[in-house]
């Protein structure tokens, strides 16, 4: 078997990374008697002093921090592509062009009015890029926080990454944005009176049902993504607890991170297109 220099350095780096993770993980995993000690499902939330219990003064640092990291990563990737931009695309550029083209075709199918194809595409694609890149992190061992006996510990490579999409606040915010934007599109296309009239169809009595139907959209939209990513992270943690993070996470990451993560990101943006499309058409 012949390996090029790049491949050799990759293999050596992988082996070193596995050994380092194992050494780091060993003492902590040994001390963990029960899975309940790991503080599954608890969140590291900081409340600013002097403002007990208020909704707007509580910060989840990991959501904000990892979200910023992903945004910076995406900006870096796009700047890198822009530098080498050409008519004949290289590998990175053709991958991105294929992805954009795929979502653009889906948008053209879903939106009949040609004026609104591009804005809807921009919304759906932005959501897709952020959600996909944060879902890809979700099944890997990484940096997170756990709460044991009322104290917060930072876990480094002994838990899966704490990604923004495994926090219901992030998903709920995106789903609400999609709901509001879809109704703004509806008002713009039909005018306010015709838009308000859609709530009273087919008869006046159906008004509460229509309102509940609209309010149920963001709930199912956000809980679908949240359940997949949060549940996937916990399943990866519980299954690799048996093997102490040696080989299992790579295979589990392939399943929960890449397969489910990318499909859920695609579904989130497809549903965004569909929800906006029902208001426009």
């Amino acid at each position: 078997m012949t390996l090029s220099k790049k491949e050799k350095t990759f293999v050596v780096a992988m082996v070193v990374a596995i050994v380092v993770v194992w050494i780091l993980a060993l003492p902590e995993m040994g001390g963990m008697k029960d899975l309940k000690d790991a503080g599954i499902g608890s969140r590291w939330v900081y409340t600013f002093p002097g403002s007990e219990g208020s909704f707007f003064t509580r910060v989840n640092f990991l959501t904000v921090g990892v979200g910023l990291l992903i945004v910076l990563f995406l900006i870096g990737v796009t700047r890198g592509i822009r530098k080498t931009y050409s008519i004949v695309p290289n590998r990175k550029q053709s991958l991105v062009e294929y992805l954009l083209q795929y979502v653009y075709d889906l948008t053209e199918e879903g939106i009949s009015d040609k004026r609104f194809v591009k804005p809807v595409f921009v919304i759906a694609m932005t959501l897709f890029l952020f959600i996909a890149s944060s879902n890809l992190l979700s099944g890997m061992p990484g940096i997170g926080a756990s709460i044991r006996n009322g104290e917060t510990y930072l876990t480094i490579f002994t838990d899966t990454w704490y990604v923004p999409t495994s926090d219901l606040n992030t998903n709920g915010t995106y789903a609400l944005i999609v709901l509001i934007v879809s109704h703004l599109f509806g008002i713009k296309v039909r005018g306010f009176k015709a838009w308000a009239k859609t709530f009273f169809e087919p008869t006046f009595i159906m008004f509460p049902m229509n309102v509940i139907g609209e309010l149920a959209k963001p709930i199912s939209h956000s809980c679908r993504l949240f359940g997949n990513i949060f549940g996937g992270g916990i399943l990866v943690f519980i299954l690799s607890y048996i093997l102490k993070f040696l080989f299992m996470p790579m295979f589990l990451w392939g399943f929960f991170g890449m397969f489910f993560g990318l499909i859920q990101a695609l579904i989130f943006s497809v549903l965004t297109i569909v929800y906006i499309g029902t208001q426009i058409n």
Partner: peptide, 25 residues
């Protein structure tokens, strides 16, 4: 088919969330 599968899975995921809440919360 895969997209439809993932949408059909949603109700199962609600159950998963509820059982996690029963166990750990």
């Amino acid at each position: 088919m895969i997209i439809a599968d993932a949408i059909a899975e949603t109700t199962g995921l609600y159950g998963l969330l509820i059982s996690f809440m029963i166990l750990f919360a």
